[in-house]
Design a protein around this nucleic acid. Structure first.
Length: 908
RNA sequence: GGGCAAUUAGCUCAGUUGGUUAGAGCACUACCUUGACAUGGUAGGGGUCAGAGGUUCGAGUCCUCUAUUGCCCACCA
């Protein structure tokens, strides 16, 4: 850092250098690691592990800044603090990335084979997987990097294996045929949460099915049997048609022999409550293998399940003559053929919702296949019980209801995925033993890899599938701490963790499942508080995302204005739990504030040159001026407010409180008032002012540190040299004490008087500005005030240089204004400025009349209220007293205003 | 269809259990390069708190309804 001769800081703040310097300093000092103290309950956060494929976006920036604030705050409070970092293997996402890379080389994963492909993914992870970790450091995250975990590392793999086996033993995991969401592109199953519905403008097609005409002994189109569908291609898998049992229109329909067009297959005719007679024609084609509702009907009525698609979405042999056509090609062809056969009636525009793959946006196909499921009801029951006992608190509270609703309506979780990157399912099959125990004989679930059948020693076949990514994520709060090793020190010490900070999108995916896993495997909720912050959106209201091109890259912002500026902006702009709408310009807030702090520090250090204060602030309030007592009292209030806000996860309130205090009280008023003292020659006064200034600034830096870690450290380190015993402050601000409010400096009277002083000064400035009196021109001011007010204003007027030049300041108990005066009238003071011939009498008179009218109305309101008996008897006493006093004030104010108005009238 | 939010200054949003004259940032207007800071200072303008009713001595705040917007959930083929 370049320094001027006077020893002040260089004018421009070199955040790049500062940030790099202090982050390595902290890490080298081991401050990110928990300081063990058996007497204290630790504070722990596990990071929501970002995808290894990820790059830091604004959502991460917000999420991790919040966590870092909590961690730094608790650490400074003296609590042993642990923030566990790590990354998620992100099954499909990562596999996609590597597959894309291979595609550029003209290869597919099938060319490599499973083993080589997985090796390729690991290689990719070694090379690029640490990008986001590096970026988290750049953000200032004070994670304990020595405990960094990865959802596929050895320990976590063991946890996953243990979990699967345990669930199997508890009969909470089973294999079943089910309609699942199938992505034909990714060729894997998706959970309901991974297949969000999107509104699509489709078509509803109407066409006739066939019946057998006994007279002709031939199939003919039937005008009675007309169905409506959005997906004609699935008719290849139809095995029935259905109508509502109460639908009178189709009374005789069961008597008909109905046949499927194009394939001329006979269909059953069933009646089912599910059918809405109002929709379409009231007749539904039933495709049990390709629609979730039809699947259920299929079971109810013992229908045939006829699968007509290959896993990649092409029609299979059951769909002849459309075999090998893509599903959408088949749709076209089938419609053409229906038209050619004269069966087609019409089509309607129809907007409906269609599930899409959340990774690749392909239309998801409901697909009948064999998958592994976790039975969720019993797990949800445990979670519901825990919630009843108030074990987990959500911030903001409204998420509790959303969470409970989901738990109460929970459905089984399909955990198998047909991809290669992930935890392979620990299940082995022995074909030889398969026929025993009703076909359940050949299935072996094991903690250890099996090489031969435990029963017949024959060859085994391992289940090809891997587990859903969330199957490792839901164990994260304890798998990262050493589980399943119950003797792990970390597990004993840090589980359950304290807070979980996350976005609303993964409440079901992750938060709810973690709670269930924690309760089931560890008999304790994984964390006691969940803070759910808002989504970061672009100014337009859209979600910020790279694909929409509206993303603001946090790293670019950091390059431009520094980490502290980014952190402060994003926190101050995000109300607790509300979505944040960000644009490039909004970060100017943080940039400007950084600049302000830096310059205030330059000013302070310039003045502190050569000054040495005792490490403990030991001045007595009685020995200080009203200005000192005022700022000290505000400081105590700030500490209280920030503590309350942080406890309630109201980070923006904490940030705003600090911002307002530092800029608009400390800089605008205290530093300005300090200037004349610091430039004066009263050494005793000067020393006291410096001590207060240093104390307030240093305390402020500690309050600021969780929000803006770098600049607070940089300035704090420089301030340290201004103390007689710098060692008393410890090596770094991040391990210094979080400020505690000191009651002896809390002084409501000083605060009241301070406000009054500010008003007097502003009032005088206002008059100057209105009359356009240049700064250098002498003016004479008369203030009507008494008692301490008089003294305070005298003091303030001496201190604030921005008042401009005063010829004379008179503070008098009463004032007869003359024709050259112009005034500001407040409830507790009147300020007049003698300004030669500058006064516009007419305007002044108007202004005064307005004020009188305003005051009269308010007085009237108050008097009516006070006349109201129920107000006097029911309202709290202090409110009534206040109103009474206010009435008196207004009365005298009115009298004085009238007097002045009369004066004006006399003059003219 | 059900649920949850939101609606306050030109814009983006605060407003903790109801209690003096509803706040901030940005934008705007005027003046100011004064020895920390023009990424700044000083002062100012701008709001029938979405609408209607109700509870209360008193409502931006509580209740009901309406309107608009957003999000989540749900089996409309």
């Amino acid at each position: 850092m370049e320094e001027t001769q006077e020893g002040a800081l260089s004018p421009a703040y070199n955040f790049r250098e500062v940030e790099e310097k202090w982050y390595s300093f902290w890490e080298a000092g081991g401050y990110f690691k928990p300081k063990a103290d058996p007497a204290k309950k630790p504070y722990t956060i596990v990071i929501p592990p970002p995808n290894v494929t990820g790059v830091l976006h604004m959502g991460h920036a917000l999420n991790n800044t919040v966590q870092d604030i909590l961690i730094r705050w608790q650490r400074m409070r003296g609590v042993p603090t642990l923030w566990v970092p790590g990354t998620d293997h992100a099954g499909i996402a990562t596999q996609n990335v590597v597959e894309k890379k291979l595609a550029k080389e003209g290869k597919s994963r099938f060319d490599l084979g499973r083993e080589a492909f997985v090796a390729e993914v690991w290689k990719w992870r070694e090379e690029y997987g640490s990008t986001i970790i590096r970026q988290l450091r750049r953000l200032g995250a004070s994670c304990d990097w020595s405990r960094e975990r990865f959802t596929m590392d050895e320990g976590l793999s063991r946890a996953v294996r243990e979990t699967f086996v345990k669930l199997y033993e508890d009969e909470l995991i089973y294999q079943g045929h089910y309609i699942i969401n199938w992505c034909p592109r990714c060729r894997t199953a998706l959970s309901d949460e991974e297949a969000p519905y999107k509104e699509v403008e489709g078509k509803l097609y109407f066409y006739r099915y066939l019946v057998k005409d006994p007279n002709l002994d031939a199939l003919v189109p039937d005008d009675q049997v007309v169905i409506a569908t959005t997906r004609p291609e699935t008719m290849l898998g139809d095995t029935a048609i259905a109508v509502n049992p109460k639908d009178k229109r189709y009374a005789g329909i069961e008597g008909k022999e109905v046949y499927l067009p194009l394939q001329n297959r006979k269909l059953r005719v069933i009646r089912d409550d599910l059918i809405d007679p109002e929709f379409g024609t009231g007749i539904v084609k039933v495709t049990p293998a390709h629609d979730p509702n039809d699947f259920e009907m299929g079971h109810r009525h013992q229908l045939e399940f006829r699968n007509v698609f290959h896993p990649d979405g092409r029609v299979n042999e059951n769909g002849a003559p459309y075999e090998n056509l893509d599903r959408f090609e088949a749709r076209k062809k089938i419609l053409e053929d229906l038209k050619a056969a004269g069966l087609f009636i019409r089509e309607e525009a129809h907007v409906h919702k269609v599930p899409h793959c959340y990774r690749c946006d392909t239309v998801v196909e409901p697909y009948l296949s064999k998958q592994w499921f976790v039975r969720m009801k019993p797990l949800a029951q445990e979670a519901l019980r825990a919630q009843k006992e108030g074990k987990v608190k959500f911030f903001p509270k409204r998420w509790t209801k959303v969470y409970l609703h989901w738990l109460r309506n929970i459905r089984d979780w399909c955990v198998s995925r047909q991809i290669w990157w992930g935890h392979q399912i620990p299940v082995w099959y022995c074909d030889a033993c398969a026929t025993q125990q009703n076909g359940q004989g050949g299935v072996f679930v094991s903690r250890e890899d099996l090489t031969q059948c435990p029963k017949c020693q024959g060859p085994l076949r391992r289940d090809e599938d891997v587990l859903d990514t969330w199957f490792s994520s839901w164990l994260w709060p304890f798998s990262t701490l050493g589980w399943p090793d119950e003797q792990s020190e970390d597990l004993k010490c840090f589980y359950p963790t304290s807070s979980l900070v996350t976005a609303q999108e993964i409440l079901y995916f992750w938060v709810a499942r973690m709670i269930m896993a924690g309760l089931h495997f560890r008999k304790a909720v994984p964390f006691s508080q969940v803070y759910i912050h808002g989504t970061v959106r672009a100014d337009s209201g859209q979600k910020m995302s790279k694909s929409l091109g509206n993303a603001i890259d946090p790293l670019e912002v950091i390059e431009e204005i520094g980490t502290d500026g980014l952190r402060f902006s994003i926190i101050m702009l995000t109300a607790s739990g509300q979505d944040a709408y960000l644009s490039r310009e909004k970060f100017e807030l943080g940039r400007n504030f950084t600049n302000k702090i830096w310059n205030a520090a330059r000013f302070a250090l310039m003045n502190l040159e050569g000054f040495k204060a005792p490490s403990k602030f030991n001045l007595k309030p009685e020995s200080l001026t009203i200005v000192d007592r005022w700022i000290l009292s505000l400081l105590q209030g700030l500490i209280g407010e920030m503590d309350r806000a942080l406890k309630d996860y109201r980070f923006n309130d904490a940030a705003t409180a600090f911002y307002h205090f530092f800029w608009h009280q400390f800089c605008d008023w205290y530093l300005e008032a300090a200037k004349p003292v610091l430039n004066g020659f009263d050494w005793e006064e000067k020393e006291k002012t410096l001590a207060v200034l240093l104390h307030v600034f240093e305390t402020g830096l500690r309050l600021l540190h969780p929000f803006m870690p770098y600049i607070s450290e940089e300035i704090w380190q420089r301030f340290k040299t201004c103390f007689k015993d710098p060692g008393a402050f410890g090596p770094s601000i991040m391990v210094s004490d979080w400020p505690k409010a000191q009651r002896k400096f809390s002084d409501p009277d000083a605060e009241r008087r301070g406000t009054l002083m500010q008003r007097a000064v502003s009032g005088i400035r206002d008059l100057r500005a209105k009359l356009n009196i240049p700064h250098t021109a002498l003016v004479s001011v008369t203030v009507k005030a008494e008692g301490t007010v008089k003294k305070d204003i005298e003091l303030m007027s001496r201190l604030i240089s921005h008042l401009g030049k005063l010829e004379k300041l008179e503070i008098v108990p009463a004032y007869d204004r003359d024709k050259d005066s112009v005034g500001n009238v407040y409830p507790d003071m009147e300020i007049y400025l003698r300004a030669g011939g500058l006064v516009d009498l007419e305007a002044e008179r108007k202004k005064l009349s307005g004020k009188i009218e305003e005051t009269r109305q308010r007085l009237e309101q108050l008097e009516t209220r006070l006349a109201n008996e129920s107000f006097v008897t029911r309202a709290p006493k202090e409110i009534v007293e206040k109103e009474k006093a206010r009435c008196e004030e207004l009365k005298s104010q009115m009298a004085s205003l009238r007097e002045n108005l009369n004066l004006f009238s006399e003059i003219s």
